[in-house]
């Protein structure tokens, strides 16, 4: 049996058109790196001449404390803390990258804690093609500045209030709230796993560097 060339071509065209039609649905868009982690560490730890990575493998006791005080379960059993030291060996700050996964994709921030155990800087590091303009619009309100000075266990009420009053639209406000949630998660992880028991130094899981 022979198939006419015209029929063959029509079938092939139809077959090629199908995935285009099927792909028109609603999907999580690809992840976009807004700023590289290494750049955030370098930029927000000025004065550091040497850098270290402290990787904490979460234990049962700390997991329970995270769930109780933070109300969330970490995405990974390991949490990475990047800290820098100056020439005299003093720690100038710690950076971690908490991430919140949503139906629109991940929101990740670079959370830099100063030696006093409070937030020094919050930088947007990861979003998606869809959420990038939303988080950038939220960041345009200046709410990232409002996280400065917060310590473990403190709610970012000023930042959330600024978002609510900014009238930037539903999705940018939603994205800003996800950023705030990531910061809160980061503060909990820092307080329990790095600083220990919410204090700036010492604790069960290592008590800093």
């Amino acid at each position: 049996m022979r198939i006419p060339s015209r029929k063959l071509a029509s079938g092939a065209l139809l077959a090629l058109a199908l995935p285009v039609l099927a792909g028109a649905g609603d999907h999580i868009t690809p992840t976009v790196v807004l700023k590289k982690q290494a750049e955030v560490i370098k930029a927000t730890l000025p004065g550091a001449s040497s850098f270290f990575l402290k990787k904490v493998e979460i234990g049962k006791r700390d997991l329970s404390r995270i769930e109780q005080s933070g109300g969330f379960e970490p995405e990974s059993p390991d949490v990475k803390f990047y800290y820098g030291q100056d020439g005299s060996g003093s720690t100038v700050g710690v950076v971690l990258f908490p991430q919140v996964n949503t139906q629109h994709g991940p929101f990740e921030v670079g959370l830099t804690m100063g030696p006093d155990g409070t937030v020094r800087d919050v930088t947007l590091t990861k979003a998606t093609v869809e959420t990038k303009p939303w988080v950038e619009k939220a960041a345009g309100t200046g709410f990232l500045e409002d996280f400065r000075g917060l310590g473990a266990g403190q709610a970012p009420t000023t930042a959330l209030e600024r978002l609510r009053s900014a009238d930037i639209g539903k999705m940018p406000t939603y994205s800003g709230k996800q950023v705030a949630k990531a910061v809160e998660h980061g503060l909990t992880l820092y307080g329990i796993l790095y600083a220990g028991s919410g204090r700036a130094a010492g604790g069960s899981s290592g008590g800093g560097p």
């Binding site: 850098f51 990787k55 990047y82 069960s204």
Partner: peptide, 14 residues
Amino acid sequence: LPEASKSTTRALDL
């Protein structure tokens, strides 16, 4: 998970 958290630290070249 282990009972207590464990940590390792190493120098980092950015």
